[in-house]
Write a protein that binds this DNA or RNA. Structure first.
Lengths: 159, 159
DNA sequence: TATTGTTATACTCTATAACTATA
DNA sequence: TATAGTTATAGAGTATAACAATA
């Protein structure tokens, strides 16, 4: 029998080797990743807005806590953004007295970045908010599925 | 034994009930999702750039193929963007003769959107590119891990 | 009056080039 | 000259309000 020329939608019931699979958006990990990521991101944005913070600012606080005294170039690399984008982000954190830039290096061009006491306090709260948001947005999964998902995602991005 | 007050990094070896876990960025599914998604997205952007297309334009073509004759409002919903954003996107696809707007509905305010013949042809190629990009960017996973990841991601975003 | 597609607009995010001050 | 941080700027992406044509 010849190949049908005008079939509408082939259900993915047969696990063919490699070629000729459906190849619609629903079979792409990238597409599923994007939709899931958008969902979690929107949820987190909503929760963080109570503190007038964006996810990147939360991440910055967590990174600074993990590497106190780091330079802005390090922070840019850790956040996967360009150095110029760090400036307004850090300015905001400094305005709100959550973090500080301190000239404390042998190289006087650079700053060491540290959390303030209130920055540390707020970060504790933010971590709880983020963990709750994570759970809420992945309510469709049980604990072992969450662990499995996290493991697979790390494998993908750490490779 | 009392809780240590100044440990640097607690390896997640014990599965404590809910509280007092590390709660750093690395334990957040949202964070891992974002990093993995960025990786796949960047990879796809690179591959699609050979055809001067963005991921959203590829998605639009795939959605139009799946629902030929749909209206712009439907496309906006499917792409999870606002109707005004559909206009320049569709303009571009129409300029390049990949898709067409046709007044074919009882409601004369709306268009039916269809792929052109060359749009269909290009989409076939784009699907292969996207599938290859997906595989390449998830090279750290084997086939069963990929299937598991896709299953979990769908569960998250379809919930 | 409500709705489809559109325009205008603005705000965020992101990226690059150029500047300053140190090195 | 090279580098850390900064400034200026431009391009995407995203969102809202308002408009024209049609219902």
């Amino acid at each position: 029998m010849a190949r049908s020329a005008h079939s509408t939608a082939v259900p993915p019931e047969s696990d063919v080797p490699a070629a000729a699979l459906d190849a619609s958006l629903e079979n792409l990990i990238g597409y599923a990743l994007r939709r899931a990521q958008l969902k979690l991101f929107q949820n987190l944005i909503g929760k963080l807005s109570a503190h007038d913070l964006r996810p990147a600012q939360f991440s910055a606080l967590a990174i600074i806590e993990q590497s106190p005294g780091l330079m802005q170039a390090d922070l840019a690399r850790a956040l996967a953004i360009e150095p110029p984008q760090v400036v307004p982000l850090l300015n905001k954190l400094e305005e709100r007295a959550l973090a500080v830039r301190i000239r404390c290096k042998p190289d006087k061009r650079s700053y060491g970045i540290f959390l303030s006491k209130s920055g540390e306090t707020l970060l504790k709260e933010l971590k709880q908010i983020a963990a709750d948001s994570d759970l809420e947005a992945t309510a469709a999964l049980n604990e072992s599925e969450r662990a499995e998902l996290l493991k697979l995602l790390k494998k993908v991005y750490q490779y």
